[in-house]
Each structure stands twice: as structure tokens, then as C-alpha cells.
């Protein structure tokens, strides 16, 4: 057992966990943050993507204890109260989801992607960057559309809503 201390969505949290506990299970089971999903459990599908120290990672392929001391943002940490994060709003607006299972990972990947490309995104870049996220419903078109739209909104200076940590 180890003590795992994290800052999750701005809150300091800690708890004891077996060393073999994956970050995704710590988030879901210890912290009750079930927005982060376990899809393939083999680091292919990206449903478990969260941000650790500002970088998108697959939380099914990292031990909770490896992340101890880090700052974590999950899908629950994006919206500002009732105000959706611009990426969430764009997914709603452009119908970027159907069953919704992959959506938390898609949005966390998209947010990271947009933050890394402040100059803006094009469709080819979005599709390449989505390599690690699998969606079995949408055919990706509306996801790509939503990410391109969010990228525009966020570069237009509505960054007040896009929290720095996200």
C-alpha cells in the first residue's frame, strides 16, 4: 500500500491504495469520479484519457502511485459550474457523440490537442491527433467538426472559460 496524494480538478485529495492500483481505478473507485471510462483496458481506445500535470495520458496505463504528487484534471473538472467548457459545448452543438462512452476521453484529448496548437488546427491534424481515441458510433466526422469549432472559439479569446489547468 502507498499513500497517493493528488490535486484532482483543483482539490487536494489523498488516499491509501495498493501499488498495483491503476490511476483510472483510483479516480473512479476511490474518488467516485466515474466520468473517466475504462474502454479497452489495453491503452488503445482512449476512453480513460485524463490530464496529468497538463498532459493527456491514458489513465489505464499508469499506476495511481506513479501519479502521486501530480495535478490531475478529469472530465468532471472542465465545466465551470453550469457553463460547459468550449470543447464540451462544441461536442453538444455539433453532435460529436452518440452513445457517449468514448466522449470523456475524446474531450480530454481534444482539449489537450487544442492547448498544444494555439495557432489553430486543420482537419488532417485533428484526425492524426485522434489516433489514440476510438469511437464506434459517430464515424468521427462530427467529433472532428466539434474539435475544429472549439479550437476556433478558444483561439478567439474566450479563454476565460477554458481553465488554464485544462
Amino acid at each position: 500500500m502507498s499513500d497517493v496524494s493528488l490535486i484532482v480538478n483543483g482539490k487536494r485529495v489523498s488516499g491509501a491504495a495498493e501499488d498495483r492500483t491503476l490511476l483510472v481505478h483510483f479516480l473512479r473507485e476511490n474518488l467516485g469520479l466515474t466520468g473517466t471510462h475504462v474502454g479497452c483496458d489495453t491503452s488503445q481506445c482512449g476512453a480513460c484519457v485524463v490530464h496529468v500535470d497538463g498532459k493527456a495520458v491514458k489513465s489505464c496505463s499508469m499506476l495511481a502511485v506513479q501519479a502521486s504528487g501530480s495535478t490531475v484534471v478529469t472530465i468532471e473538472g472542465l465545466a465551470n459550474g453550469a457553463d460547459l467548457h468550449p470543447v464540451q459545448a462544441a461536442f453538444r452543438e455539433h453532435h460529436g457523440l452518440q452513445c457517449g462512452f468514448c466522449t470523456p476521453g475524446m474531450i480530454m484529448t481534444a482539449t489537450d490537442m487544442i492547448n498544444r496548437h494555439p495557432e489553430g488546427l486543420d482537419e488532417a491534424t485533428v484526425r492524426t491527433e485522434l489516433e489514440g481515441n476510438i469511437c464506434r458510433c459517430t464515424g468521427y466526422h462530427n467529433i472532428v467538426k466539434a474539435i475544429l469549432a472549439a479550437s476556433k472559439t478558444m483561439s478567439k479569446g474566450s479563454k476565460g472559460k477554458a481553465r488554464q489547468a485544462a
Binding site: G46, M62, T109, G132, N133
Partner: peptide
């Protein structure tokens, strides 16, 4: 290599 999340780790 891999995808963006894999390259981060």
C-alpha cells in the same frame, strides 16, 4: 510513435 497520450509517457 503510438499516439499523443502514449508519447506523453
Amino acid at each position: 510513435i503510438g499516439d499523443p497520450a502514449v508519447r506523453h509517457r
